[in-house]
Amino acid sequence: MNDKKADIFNCGKVLFSSKGFKDTNVSDITKMAGIGVGTFYNYYSSKEKLFMEIFLEENVKLKKSIMESLDLNEEPLKTVKELMLLNVNGMNSNPILREWYNRDVFSKLEQHYREENGIKHVDFLYHSFLELIKKWQMEGKMRDDIDCELIMAIFTALINIDTHKEEIGIQYFPQILDYLAEFVMKGLTDDQK
């Protein structure tokens, strides 16, 4: 029985990667998986639900890969800049994760997922970075008068700026993100000169 769910998941991943979310429908997935449409709904309530499950798995893989590649003994500014660069490159190179930038699609998906699963299940960050922030605070490398959850929200805001690069000015975007990361980190590390 779990094999059918895995087949649906894997076929959905292949089709979402090659055709995108909008151009993939449930019948495409079931045809590729060799099952009936009704069987799909035994495992997933909607195409959106399947996509979000795939998206979250891909996002976790990317974040884990990023955390494993970082030198966590580097200074916070260098670490955060590297993390942001790796995140943007990883999001852009993965067709599933790239749907994040299609705000028309993704805002609807996110809203649908929140309604079905609650806000706690839409956590695109990862706890190991939160632990790193706590470590930096204990070592005096980062301000400890700001709650680590609020610092995570600041980093989330920085990452979300990427979805507005056309409005900001795409010709300035990479430099803006880099400078904003630097300014934020200097403010968080009391390294204001």
Rank of each mutant, 00 (worst) to 15 (best):
N2T: 09
N2S: 11
K4D: 07
I8N: 00
I8V: 03
I8Q: 09
F9M: 14
F9V: 05
N10D: 14
C11D: 08
S17T: 11
S18Y: 04
K19M: 08
K19V: 10
K19Y: 09
G20F: 07
G20P: 02
K22Y: 14
K22V: 15
D23A: 08
V26R: 04
D28T: 03
D28M: 12
D28I: 02
I29Y: 00
I29Q: 02
A33V: 03
I35L: 15
G36Y: 12
V37L: 01
G38R: 00
N42D: 05
Y43C: 01
Y43P: 01
Y44E: 04
S46T: 06
S46V: 10
K47Y: 08
M52D: 06
M52P: 11
E53T: 07
I54T: 14
F55M: 04
L56S: 05
L56M: 04
E57M: 10
E57Y: 05
V60T: 12
K63S: 13
K64Q: 06
K64Y: 06
M67D: 02
M67E: 07
L72D: 11
N73F: 11
N73C: 03
P76N: 15
P76S: 15
L77A: 01
K78A: 11
K78H: 09
V80W: 00
K81F: 02
E82L: 08
E82V: 07
L83P: 08
M84P: 06
L86A: 15
N87Y: 14
N87R: 01
N89F: 03
S93Y: 08
P95I: 14
I96T: 06
R98V: 11
E99T: 14
R103F: 15
R103N: 05
D104F: 12
D104V: 10
D104R: 02
F106T: 05
L109N: 00
H112N: 14
H112V: 05
R114C: 06
E116G: 05
N117Q: 13
G118S: 07
K120S: 15
H121F: 09
V122S: 07
D123K: 13
D123N: 13
L125P: 01
L125I: 12
Y126W: 02
F129E: 09
F129K: 01
L130D: 13
L132P: 00
L132V: 06
K135M: 11
W136K: 06
Q137M: 03
M138D: 12
M138Q: 12
G140V: 12
G140L: 13
K141E: 10
R143G: 11
C148K: 04
L150E: 15
L150D: 15
L150S: 13
I151H: 09
M152D: 07
M152K: 02
A153H: 04
I154Q: 03
F155V: 07
I159H: 02
N160E: 09
T163Q: 00
H164D: 04
K165I: 09
E167D: 14
E167I: 15
G169E: 10
G169W: 06
Q171I: 02
Y172W: 04
P174D: 11
I176T: 13
I176N: 02
D178Q: 05
Y179I: 12
Y179V: 13
L180N: 13
L180C: 14
F183V: 04
F183M: 11
F183Y: 08
V184A: 06
V184F: 11
V184N: 02
M185N: 07
K186Q: 15
Q192F: 15
Q192M: 13
